[in-house]
């Protein structure tokens, strides 16, 4: 199994490399950092602009392969280069990554767990009131774009805050700037900031996952092995827990892992709306700022995340399902 995963890792690394290369080339061709300098008032002399662009590694006069090799070389040494304004990408990357991850890890885990639970309950109580309720709510959140959900949540938070008479739920940023409230105070403050954006991510995921989980569980509910388990003397409920649940989770493993991986940038709207300075916000902003290096860096970050998601999916699948375990 270890060797199998190692081989998969190598395959994925190749894919990451290809993805990042394509992202870099595309960004270099589409984005025009020179325009930001030429539009300045007073106009800077062309020689100065050229020198500046070359220093940042984004001069369109330099050959693309040379720029690419230079940037990639830096990346391999752990240096992602500079932003279009000359700042260090490395400094910003880690703080933004942490912001995004805090939001995404909690949101995804919560969304997936609740989604699985809702799906299982829906399936077991198929055609009941609760099943139809879950179905209706799920379809609402699947059909609603996240920016609408997020605005709804904001609106709801306003009502809550008004009713409570103080700010219980924050909807801008991930902490109150300059807050001095000791350890517990800071934690409370951060949690209060976290609730709404996490919910907006989790709700969509829950809705989606619950639909898939419901179907997977329904398949299992009609399966012969569940009947065998009951024939051995288990009650229906025991049979469901001991024999049904794990089997029903198998088809979910790839879905869960990949939805986590693709959320990294998919959460752009959420980050924008709630004013979280995360990766999603960064990539959008850097495209509007014609920032080639940042765009490529975020692409790299995303690709690596998808890589981990793929490995996670393989591991989850193998843990759940002995049929796919390989001894090679």
């Amino acid at each position: 199994m270890g060797r199998f995963l190692l081989r998969r890792l190598v395959h994925h690394l190749v894919l990451v490399f290809v993805a990042v290369t394509l992202a870099y080339v595309l960004a270099s061709l589409a984005l025009d950092p020179r325009s930001r300098y030429e539009g300045r008032n007073p106009p800077a002399p062309p020689a100065v602009i050229d020198a500046q662009l070359s220093e940042y590694g984004v001069n369109d006069e330099d050959p693309l392969p040379e720029r690419y090799v230079h940037w990639m070389g830096g990346v391999l040494r752990g240096d992602f280069g500079t932003t279009v304004t000359g700042g260090s990408i490395n400094d910003e990357l880690w703080s933004r990554a942490l912001v995004s991850l805090r939001l995404l890890v909690i949101g995804s885990v919560l969304g997936a767990a609740v989604g699985v639970l809702v799906g299982v309950v829906s399936a077991v109580k198929q055609h009941s009131f609760i099943d139809r309720l879950f179905t209706a709510v799920s379809f609402f959140f699947i059909a609603t774009p996240v920016f609408f959900t997020a605005v709804l949540l904001k609106f709801g938070a306003l009502q809550v805050n008004e009713a409570a008479g103080e700010t219980v739920l924050f909807y801008t940023g991930y902490e109150t700037p300059g807050l001095e409230a000791g350890f517990w105070g800071t934690v409370t403050d951060q949690v209060a900031h976290l609730i709404l954006p996490t919910l907006s991510i989790a709700l969509g995921l829950t809705a989606l996952v619950s639909r898939y989980q419901r179907n997977a569980m329904l398949d299992v509910l009609n399966s012969d092995f569940l009947r065998t388990a009951q024939a051995k003397g288990l009650t229906r409920r025991q049979a469901l827990y001991r024999h049904g649940l794990r089997t029903a989770l198998i088809p979910m493993a790839p879905l869960l892992a990949y939805s986590f991986g693709t959320l990294v940038v998919g959460a752009t709207f959420t980050e924008k709306i709630f004013g979280w300075h995360g990766m999603g916000e960064w990539v959008v902003d850097s495209i509007t700022r014609d920032d080639i290096n940042v765009t490529a860096t975020v692409a790299l970050f995303t690709a690596v995340f998808v890589l981990f998601a793929a490995l996670l999916s393989d591991v989850l699948h193998a843990v759940l399902d002995p049929r796919v375990r390989v001894t090679a």
Partner: peptide
């Protein structure tokens, strides 16, 4: 399973795969 036991058709699907 203790006093009445049953053997099913199609033993491929009748045993829990995991």
């Amino acid at each position: 399973g203790s006093r009445i036991a049953m053997v099913f058709q199609d033993p491929l699907s009748a045993l829990t795969p995991v």
